[in-house]
Design a protein around this nucleic acid. Structure first.
Lengths: 221, 221
DNA sequence: CCATACTTGGAATGCCGTTCCATCCATGTC
DNA sequence: GACATGGATGGAACGGCATTCCAAGTATGG
């Protein structure tokens, strides 16, 4: 059943998975599915988990902790890129098993990097948020491109066009980078983001401890 | 009309905004709304844009570029924390005006930091992804808490409980940080993530250029 | 052979985004 | 001051969806 869901999601995107479609593929009724899953959300989580388990299991092993983080992040990126629905599923079900699995594996390596115990959570949470954020954005891009029946390149071209049309008075930066948009490499950009994080972490470990003396406003707005 | 949408979203969350609810509040018919907006997505974008414009306008000014990035990020965090629907709206409409505005203002400061032109896009994209990722996660948490009629603290407590129940064999890291979950500070964690980024950027500017000689697989999977 | 518990299939329900169209109203024209 | 015109309105109707409900089927153990 999870396999069937994944197949439907791969073929029709996240909008393609309906209980009726799944019922038809399984040659059963929509109601029967509710005997095995509680929710549609449950279904998504189960499908996501199946994928995430595979990604983590297949994750190439060796190297330093930082290398392992990079490897896991890239494998995740590739999975999210292959299956845009995964990104939105993970983004919408925080605290579910797939997310926990990722958290665990990132956490182990962060710990192995020698981050002080009191900072582990913050560092791992930041990494996880970044990974999920990119995944979500990727998913949204893919979904939007699908709705307009555009390939990735044409879609980025359209965005670049829209950006160029903005008033240079108000949007100097955006306009200046618009031309670079159509042929940038999402995967490389993603990796650079990870590297920035890892560098930041390394700097903290080498230098002063992480608890920033920077004033952090704590009033509840 | 945008104001009415925002009011409904604030009261009832993202699920609360329906065309019928909006029509009732505006004492009109559902169809009339379609004269002014193309889509429900359009409506969300318009509402998001109104908020984002205010956040950016009210953003406290002074300080170094890095300080300005921190200030904008924190103001955004507070806005996203106040209005969980904003996070999911921004996450689902990439390339729309609110996102572009954020991109622009982050970009200006990144440029002011002295990041080489060829690396600007990557750095800004990473920052944006992080901010949106956190926003999306926050939104998902809030939505999930709302559905279970739980306050934030009780909700985190439940999650901590679930994490503690995991097999320590398989999830040593997650289990070890579970007790810290209920009383961590999302806002401080978010800021630390931003700081990690900024440190990573500073390190690159000070040291070697950003284009990493690290091998980046580029095959399309 | 039957009783019980598990499982199934599909009809019915209620909600939602979206479309459609008859109607209204303000504005500019003669 | 009547009138045509086009922007705006309100609400009914449609199609699709998740979810619920229940009558019917099926296997299992006595």
């Amino acid at each position: 059943m999870v396999d069937a869901s994944i197949a439907i999601l791969d073929e029709g995107g996240e909008k393609g998975l309906t209980f009726q479609a799944l019922a038809k593929r399984l040659k059963t009724g929509a109601g029967a599915i509710y005997w095995h899953v509680e929710n549609k959300s449950d279904l998504l989580v189960a499908a996501s988990d199946a994928i995430v388990i595979n990604v983590i299991a297949a994750c190439s092993a060796g190297g330093s902790p930082a290398d392992k983080i990079r490897a896991l992040a890239l494998d995740l990126f590739d999975a999210l890129d292959d299956r845009p629905w995964l990104g939105s599923a993970l983004a919408q079900a925080p605290g579910s098993m797939p997310t926990i699995r990722i958290l665990e594996h990132l956490g182990r390596e962060v710990r192995a990097m020698g981050v002080p115990h009191e900072d582990e959570w913050t560092v791992v949470a930041a990494l996880l948020n970044y990974v999920l954020g990119v995944g979500g954005q990727n998913a949204a891009h893919a979904e939007m491109a699908r709705m307009q029946h555009l390939e990735r390149e044409a879609f980025l071209g359209e965005i670049a066009l829209r950006l160029s049309a903005l008033d240079p008075k108000d949007f100097p930066f955006v306009q200046s980078i618009a031309p670079k948009m159509p042929d940038h490499d999402d995967r490389a950009d993603f990796l650079t983001g990870i590297d920035l994080f890892l560098d930041g972490i390394a700097r903290r470990i080498a230098g002063s401890p992480m608890a920033s003396d920077r004033t952090t406003r704590t009033e509840e707005p």
